[in-house]
Amino acid sequence: MNVGLLYSRIRKDEKLLLSELRERGHDVEKIDVRKQRFNLANAPEAFADLDIVVDRCLATSRSLYATQFCEAYGVPVVNSHETAEICSDKVKNSLALEAAGVPTPNTDVAFTTEAALESIEDFGYPCVLKPVIGSWGRLMAKIDSRDAAEAILEHKATLGHYEHKVFYVQEFVEKPGRDIRVLAVDGEPIAAMARSSDHWLTNAAKGAETEPFELDARAEELVQQASDAVGGGLLGVDLMEAGDDYTIHEVNHTVEFKALDGAVETDVAGTVVDWLERKAAEAETVEVTA
């Protein structure tokens, strides 16, 4: 197949994918989105004859627009624009999980510091304030006191981009020092790992230790539901163990899997490419039938 890979930075994740695709004899068109000009009606030359495009944009804004252009040009793209739209924004992500009946941490969204402070006081201390757009655990605040809350809210309101004036306030989930990252394709888990840290943030990007995690039936069920809730695709579903159940705090749409690849025995890139081959075949079938 002829695969387009949208990127602006080739991380180890993309190298793993590129290597697997090339080993299987697929043609790969690396498309640096920084060099593209997306016309409303005419697709850039790099998009000609592609069977499928894989969005691996590092920047959320580029991912959102590039996937929308792919769909406008009639080029199959994974993940879909709809999935990117939901997953890239924590408010939309939480709303989708809630609407699907997936357990997710209780969350308030407020537009002023005064309203946000009321939410924080209602949740009690500690609680969590997160940016609606962002990743790798950056700009996350665990708020332990009213003094801290007032200071953080003032900083966000004064120094922040307008998106930081959308205050996403969340209950603090007492997790057992770890959370669980599941890599899944259309809800089917490829592999999972536990990310452990003494810090309340357990992102691999923050240096958390990783080890393989065996999913039980309930976790598998929730991963499927969470994937369906955001429109499916190649996703990183983040779960926390909460009491005797799980809670899903977010689903990631341009998921990084290098940490997972190092933690588990599964051939992660190979399994992702198996799925890409199926998606490309499905897209071709739809085209022929249409």
């Binding site: 920047a59 962002g134 990743s135 341009t254």
Partner: peptide
Amino acid sequence: LEVVDTEPPVLERAPELEEDWGE
């Protein structure tokens, strides 16, 4: 440093981290 060519290798300073980068 960002690799902008491989034959022969050419390096440029990589862009600074942007706020919306991530997964």
